[in-house]
C-alpha cells in the first residue's frame, strides 16, 4: 500500500506540531521517523493511523483519500510505545481481539480465528504462552504480543511508536534484527518512530529526519550520514564538530585567517560541520589551529577535545587523532577537514 502524505499541517490549540509535511512512502518500504522529542514524529504517525486528524492537508492510502476516515475504517496495525496490551486478557485473547470485535458478517468463524491467532503467535515465537497474561511476560515478549495483535487484523500498513523504547539494550538489538526479518517476510509497508539514530539507520530502508514539525531530510542511511542536507541533520545524526566561519567569494576563513577551503555556499557568517574522524593534520599551510584541552581513548582511536580559538573565547570541538600521532594535553595541533559541509 503506497501512502502519500500531502502538505499536512497539524496544530494543537495554538501550538503548531507539523508544518506542511509531505512524504511519499512506497509499498513495502520500512521507514523510520527520526527526530528529537517534540519534532512531530509521533504526531505524524498518529495522523497516518487516524488517531489524530490533520488541520490541513491530505493523507492518501493508495488512490484513496483517508484523511477523514476513522481509525477503524483505515485498518492500520498500530503498536503503542508501552504496548497497551489488555491486562485482563490472555495473550491469545489479546491477539484475537481485533477479529472478535468485527461485525458478524466480517467475523471469521471461531475455528478460523483460533487457527489465525495460533499462526500469529507462532510467527512471533510465543507458542506455548497463549494462556499467559501480559503481566507474566517480559518486555520483549509483550512487544511481540503487541505486534501479533496489530497483525491479526491484516492491516494495510504497520505503524510502530518507539517500538524498542522501553526495552534494555540487549533485547533491543535482538528485536531490531528480528523486526527487520519480520518485515522482509511479511512485506508490510511499515513506519516506525524512534529517537535512536542507530536504530533508524540500521533498520530502515529510508530515514525521515524531523525537527520542529518539519521534515529536514529523507534518504537512505548513507544519504543521511554522508550527505546531510542541513545543519540540524549534520549535528543530530552521528558525531559532528561545528565551527563558525566566514565565507567570501567561495573562500572560507576562520577568525580572519584563511583556511584554504573552498565552498560553493554564498557569502556570509556560516558554520562549518565535519565528522571528528574526517580530518587530516597539517604541518604547514593554512589550517584550523587549536590547543588540546583533554584527550580520551576509545577502542581504536583517540578523541581530543580542542580549543580551536587558541584561548580567545573557547570554540570547543572534538576531533579524532590517529594513534601514531604524538600529541598531549596542552599541545597545539593544526588540522583541516577533508570532508565538510557549510550551512
Amino acid at each position: 500500500m503506497d501512502i502519500r502524505i500531502d502538505k499536512i499541517r497539524k496544530e494543537f490549540g495554538d501550538f503548531p506540531a507539523l508544518h506542511d509535511v509531505s512524504l511519499n512512502i512506497r509499498s513495502g518500504e520500512l521507514i523510520a521517523l527520526l527526530g528529537p522529542s517534540g519534532s512531530g514524529k509521533t504526531t505524524l504517525l498518529r495522523l497516518v493511523a487516524g488517531l489524530e486528524y490533520p488541520s490541513q492537508g491530505r493523507i492518501l492510502f493508495g488512490e484513496e483519500d483517508a484523511s477523514w476516515k476513522s481509525v477503524q475504517e483505515r485498518n492500520v496495525g498500530f503498536v503503542f510505545q508501552h504496548y497497551a496490551l489488555f491486562k485482563h486478557m490472555t495473550v491469545f485473547d489479546n491477539v484475537a481481539f481485533g477479529l472478535r470485535v468485527r461485525g458478524s458478517k466480517d467475523r471469521p468463524p471461531k475455528a478460523e480465528i483460533r487457527r489465525r491467532v495460533e499462526e500469529l503467535i507462532d510467527m512471533v515465537q510465543l507458542s506455548g504462552m497463549e494462556s499467559r497474561y501480559p503481566g507474566q511476560l517480559s518486555g520483549g515478549q509483550r512487544q511481540r504480543v503487541a505486534l501479533a495483535r496489530a497483525m491479526a487484523i491484516e492491516p494495510r500498513v504497520l505503524l510502530l511508536d518507539e517500538p524498542f523504547g522501553a526495552l534494555d539494550a540487549k533485547v533491543r538489538k535482538d528485536l531490531r534484527k528480528w523486526l527487520r526479518e519480520f518485515h522482509d517476510r511479511t512485506g508490510h509497508t511499515t513506519l516506525f518512530v524512534t529517537h535512536d539514530q542507530e536504530e533508524a539507520l540500521e533498520l530502515a530502508d529510508r530515514v525521515v529526519v524531523m525537527s520542529q514539525g518539519k521534515i529536514e531530510q529523507v534518504g537512505s542511511a548513507d544519504d543521511i550520514y554522508d550527505r546531510p542536507q542541513s545543519a540540524f541533520v549534520f549535528s543530530f545524526v552521528g558525531d559532528s564538530a561545528k565551527l563558525p566561519v566566514t565565507v567570501a567569494n567561495g573562500d572560507v576563513t576562520f577568525r580572519g585567517a584563511p583556511t584554504g577551503l573552498r565552498t560553493s555556499v554564498g557569502n556570509g557568517e556560516k558554520h562549518i560541520f565535519f565528522r571528528p574522524r574526517d580530518i587530516a593534520l597539517q604541518d604547514d599551510g593554512p589550517a584550523f589551529e587549536g590547543r588540546i584541552l583533554s584527550m580520551r581513548r576509545l577502542a581504536g582511536a583517540r578523541i581530543a577535545e580542542i580549543d580551536a580559538g587558541l584561548g580567545e573565547g573557547a570554540e570547543r570541538v572534538e576531533i579524532e587523532l590517529p594513534l601514531g600521532v604524538p600529541a598531549e594535553q596542552g599541545s597545539v595541533i593544526r588540522f583541516l577537514p577533508h570532508r565538510f559541509a557549510i550551512f
Binding site: G50, L51, Q72, V76, G77, A84, F97, G98, V101
Partner: peptide
C-alpha cells in the same frame, strides 16, 4: 487512553471498547 486507542485501532467500536476494555480496567 492508550488501551482505548489500541482497541479502536483494532477496529472496535466505542461501545465495544467500553465494554471489553474500559470496564474491565
Amino acid at each position: 487512553t492508550a488501551d482505548e486507542e489500541a482497541a479502536i485501532s483494532l477496529g472496535a467500536s466505542g461501545w465495544q471498547t467500553f465494554i471489553r476494555v474500559t470496564l474491565p480496567n
